[in-house]
Design a protein around this nucleic acid. Structure first.
Lengths: 219, 219
DNA sequence: CCCGATCTTGACCCGCTGGTCAGGCGCAAG
DNA sequence: CTTGCGCCTGACCAGCGGGTCAAGATCGGG
């Protein structure tokens, strides 16, 4: 592709991406027609193909955008938190908040696995990386005795991810009424207690993470 | 519809349902063409419409079948387990085993929410009922002090469901390698520790549920 | 053996949707 | 003023896929 775009062009392209993200979130990728996107943006159909090779290409751009944003957010959330369990608590808090705040983008991830399409792997990469990070965190916690060592760290890591992802999904689809902050706290407590060696360890992690969060907010 | 079917007819219909379930599980509902189903069964396209009004009707039949099987399995799993936390452990064990054993049917549930279609509500009903049951179980546990009372029972119930559902999804898509039994145990421990008031309560629940399971198996 | 009900076939129809294209408009540089 | 490039339009095309149908094949009971 590689097309030279003026400022107006960039704006129009971003506009199309935004409308597409919203529609995909509302009714899914397959159910959203190109004509829906352009009508929503108030332009003619042909213009879509001025900015994107095809429907798939636009989808890939959205995935990339999402991945970047998520990564950026994650790294910020962990400053000032040292212990594995504390980092897990803080990371979960941040993940829930992020996913809830960017439902349009998040809904795209949910599609993964449904389609046997080419970009399934591309979509899963975000989740895979997240699982890997959480796994090493859990191993560290098992080493220093703050995390139960009677279960496989990789499986536990996926259990943590599963809780976060699907719980936000429940909230997005209106099954859980709670506020985002409440949901984030409950989720963080849930996963921390789930893998902590003792209740005391879990509570200590919560105090540490909350302290760092307040410190950062007031900073 | 209501068509009189001979034994041969019943068999052919079941055959089509089975092929459809497998294909839906592999590539999703939207991605599966009627022609794929009939080709997979080795019959002509027109025959599909002898047994089903249309593609949607077949889908609804599959949902109903799944719901019945799941309900039956669930009720069996809880005999001989008294305490709320123990019932939660046993129920989680049974759910993971069931979902893993019936991946074809389970994959259909995953579609819920993606489609803005008519049967979204129909699909969600299974999950909703499950969440309600788990919620009352958690309330009972909070009342007798074996479950943490610092979080909303409804939200906790959804967190439990989220873990189970998405963890099996991870296994189905090859992200978790563990055996079904190992996965079930890990999942049950995970959710029990997540909501138990103390580690001791969680361990007691595991012993109770495992004891009942062994008793039933040797029975 | 005959007849009707059940079952089976594959060519056909038609609407939908991703993608194309020939052309038009406007603006900025020369 | 004109030339060219970026931007924009909407009619059109082609293939796909759900659903139909008229014509058999098969089979069991009378």
């Amino acid at each position: 592709m590689e097309r030279r775009l003026t400022r107006q062009g960039e704006a129009r392209k971003a506009e199309l991406l935004a409308h597409a993200a919203r529609l995909f979130a509302e009714r899914g990728y397959q159910q959203t027609r190109v004509i829906d996107i352009v009508r929503s943006a108030g332009v003619a159909k042909g213009l879509f193909y001025w900015y994107f090779d095809n429907k798939d290409a636009l989808f890939r751009e959205l995935i990339g955008e999402m991945r970047e944003r998520l990564r950026a957010e994650q790294t910020v959330a962990l400053v000032g938190v040292g212990s594995p369990l504390g980092r897990l608590f803080a990371g979960t808090l941040a993940s829930v908040r992020f996913l809830a705040a960017h439902r349009e983008l998040y809904a795209l991830m949910q599609i993964e696995g449904q389609t046997g399409d080419a970009f399934t792997d591309e979509l899963r990469e975000t989740t895979t990386a997240h699982a890997r990070d959480t796994g090493t965190l859990i191993e560290a916690g098992q080493a220093d005795g703050t995390i139960r060592a009677d279960d496989d760290p990789t499986t536990l890591a996926h259990a943590v991810l599963a809780t976060v992802i699907h719980l936000v999904y429940f909230q997005r689809t209106g099954r859980v009424e709670e506020s985002v902050d409440g949901l984030a706290t409950t989720a963080a407590r849930f996963v921390t207690h789930a893998i902590a060696a003792t209740g005391q360890d879990a509570h200590a992690a919560e105090r540490e993470a909350m302290g760092a969060f307040v410190a950062m907010a007031t900073n």
